[in-house]
């Protein structure tokens, strides 16, 4: 590493960018893992219904299936925007 590199503005290292991106995508994929195949489409259609009344982002909806003692729970979270 040359002495001049200390003078240059610090660029974010690619490894930390990689880690951050991976953590996000892996968490998202784990949330829908093992769930039924119709989940993404269900999420899409639910979002469309909600959007008829309130304008929400794509990221504002979170859907997942949990298994608890033999029964499945469909969990749906929609964050509504501030008025």
């Amino acid at each position: 590493m040359s002495i001049f590199s200390y003078l240059l503005p610090k660029k974010e290292k690619s490894a930390s960018v990689a880690k951050e991106r991976l953590q996000i995508i892996v968490a998202r994929e784990r949330a829908t893992r093992g769930g039924p195949d119709y989940l993404p489409q269900l999420q899409e259609e639910l979002l469309m219904v909600v959007r008829k009344y309130v304008e929400v982002d794509q990221d504002a909806i979170n859907i997942q299936v949990d298994r608890e003692s033999g029964c499945e729970i469909l969990e749906l979270n929609i964050t509504l925007p501030d008025e």
Binding site: K13, S14, A15, S16, A18, K19, L22, Q23, V26
Partner: peptide, 16 residues
């Protein structure tokens, strides 16, 4: 490459 910040470290991969 890990020390130069160009490659995910073993800790990073283990974390994920």
């Amino acid at each position: 490459r890990v020390e130069r910040g160009e490659m995910l470290s073993v800790e990073d991969v283990k974390d994920i």
